[in-house]
Design a protein around this nucleic acid. Structure first.
Lengths: 156, 156
DNA sequence: ATCGCTGCAAAAATTTTGCAGGTAA
DNA sequence: TTACCTGCAAAATTTTTGCAGCGAT
């Protein structure tokens, strides 16, 4: 498990390497995309579209552009989508060659995020596949709780 | 694991018992609520608001009323909210005295749902609590894959 | 010169809220 | 009678789409 938001990214890829991945797929390296990728690579936890939009200097990009970029990057497997159960998709950069599969422990009050490296249900998917006949089984798993900080803070 | 949509509800509560739970909390037993509860009790998998609205006879209820009812029922612990990662909340009736905690295996093509009774990550929550200091840890876990039926069906 | 990408605007989809009237208890 | 509840309308969120023009290669 790794603290997030403060700790360095597990495998910080250089911006140039990220844009190179774009070029390799005949996608264009534009201003908005560089700003977006540079923002993501400095984060070690998933960012919501809204957070990305707010973090980017005003006028650098547009909500529609960000949505379209995230769709593209997801399709290219450069980002992974996470869902914390509020109605907002979150995205995290995926190091080249990896699949980005991991889980999170999210504070239900302040939304701080810890990354969980271990993946527990993996061995279960095989038995599920056998008993159900489903193919290509994957899963989403997120943990929620009250972080130590919020335990000592008076309720709002 | 139990096939859903066709199999009988694990512990089908009578409608009268459900409305009694309402009365016990000084909530009123109205037409829309009876229709809603009667619909849910005949289902063994989570229903989206939209599905509920569509299944109810026209004029029986209103989208806003359904949303408000689901909020109330969730607060009363009579239903549990599930999230399959598309942008739509789903709700399932929770038998009295239970917490409704379980997981699903969802077909990514036809959306058929199997219920998974086992809960794997439960024993992990304790160790997570120790290493992270988080309190009251819970989790969401859903499985996805291609069901046997869809494996043999030509792609659209 | 292409083809892809962007910003703006409008639309869609899901969920929330205000309000005036209606109904269960 | 008195809360609580409903339907309708409007608004708030999140996400998608159309389109004309701009820009990376």
């Amino acid at each position: 498990m790794t603290a997030s938001g403060h700790s360095p990214k597990r495998s910080a890829e250089k911006l140039a390497d990220l844009t190179e991945r774009l070029r390799r797929q005949s996608r264009k390296v534009t201003g908005p995309r560089q700003a977006l990728l540079d923002l993501l690579r400095q984060q070690s936890h998933p960012l919501a579209i809204r957070e990305i939009f707010a973090a980017l200097p005003a006028g650098i990009s547009d909500l529609a552009t960000i949505y379209r970029s995230m769709h593209l990057l997801e399709q290219m497997r450069m980002v992974k989508r996470f869902d914390f159960g509020d109605g907002a998709a979150r995205f995290e950069l995926v190091p080249e060659g990896e699949d980005g599969h991991h889980h999170h422990l999210v504070c239900t009050r302040c939304s701080v995020v810890l990354e969980i490296e271990e993946c527990f249900p993996e061995h279960v998917e095989r038995s599920l596949a056998q008993t159900s006949g489903f193919q290509g089984i994957t899963h989403r798993l997120e943990f929620f709780g009250l972080c130590p900080e919020c335990q000592t803070t008076k309720s709002i």
